[in-house]
Simulated scan of single mutants.
Amino acid sequence: MTDLERAKKHLEAWLDAELAVSTGQSYRIGTRQLTRASLSEIRKQITYWQREVSRLQGKGSRKVFRAVPRDF
C-alpha cells in the first residue's frame, strides 16, 4: 500500500467518523455505552488528511526554477 492510498483510507475513515457523530455523539445499550470522538477533533483530522492527500498527489507543491542571466 502506498502512502497516498494509506492517506486516502485515513481520510475516508475520518469522514465516516464525522457522519457517525452527526447521528449521535454517544449511546447506551443496556449497561454498555459508546462515546465517539469530539467533532472538533474529527474535523482537525479531516483537514490534516486532506492536506496530506493533496501533498502526496503533488497538488500545491512549489517548484523552483533557476535562471542564469547571460550577456551576449
Rank of each mutant, 00 (worst) to 15 (best):
M1K: 09
M1T: 07
M1N: 09
D3R: 08
D3C: 04
L4M: 06
L4R: 05
E5N: 11
E5T: 10
R6S: 12
A7L: 13
A7R: 02
A7C: 11
K8D: 05
K8W: 03
K8A: 08
K8M: 14
K8R: 15
K9N: 13
K9P: 01
H10P: 00
H10S: 14
L11M: 02
L11V: 02
L11C: 04
L11G: 02
A13E: 13
A13V: 00
A13H: 15
W14G: 03
W14S: 07
W14Q: 13
L15F: 01
L15C: 04
D16I: 02
D16W: 00
A17L: 12
E18R: 09
L19Y: 04
L19Q: 09
A20E: 13
V21G: 00
V21D: 03
V21S: 03
V21Y: 02
S22W: 01
T23I: 07
G24F: 06
G24S: 09
G24L: 07
G24K: 03
G24V: 08
Q25S: 05
Q25M: 07
Q25W: 06
Q25P: 00
S26G: 04
S26F: 03
S26N: 07
S26M: 06
S26I: 00
S26C: 03
Y27V: 02
Y27I: 01
R28N: 05
R28S: 13
I29T: 12
I29A: 11
G30V: 12
G30A: 11
G30I: 06
G30P: 08
T31M: 07
T31A: 15
R32A: 15
R32L: 15
R32H: 15
R32D: 15
L34I: 14
T35C: 02
T35Q: 15
R36C: 02
R36F: 09
A37I: 02
S38L: 13
L39G: 01
L39K: 04
L39P: 01
S40W: 01
S40A: 13
E41T: 08
E41G: 02
E41K: 05
I42Y: 05
I42F: 03
I42K: 00
I42C: 03
R43Q: 15
R43V: 07
R43E: 14
K44V: 12
Q45V: 01
I46M: 02
I46Y: 05
I46A: 02
I46G: 04
T47I: 10
T47V: 09
T47Q: 10
T47F: 11
Y48T: 12
Y48Q: 08
W49E: 10
R51Q: 14
E52C: 03
E52N: 04
V53Y: 03
V53T: 06
V53N: 09
V53R: 00
S54V: 00
R55N: 11
R55H: 11
R55K: 08
R55S: 11
R55Q: 11
R55E: 12
L56I: 04
Q57M: 11
Q57P: 01
G58E: 08
G58Y: 08
G58K: 03
G58S: 07
G58V: 04
G58L: 06
K59C: 02
K59Y: 05
K59R: 05
K59G: 01
G60E: 12
S61L: 11
R62Q: 11
R62F: 06
R62C: 07
R62D: 08
K63M: 13
V64G: 04
F65T: 05
A67Q: 14
A67Y: 14
V68N: 10
V68D: 14
P69M: 10
R70I: 12
D71A: 10
D71W: 06
F72Q: 13
F72V: 09
F72M: 09
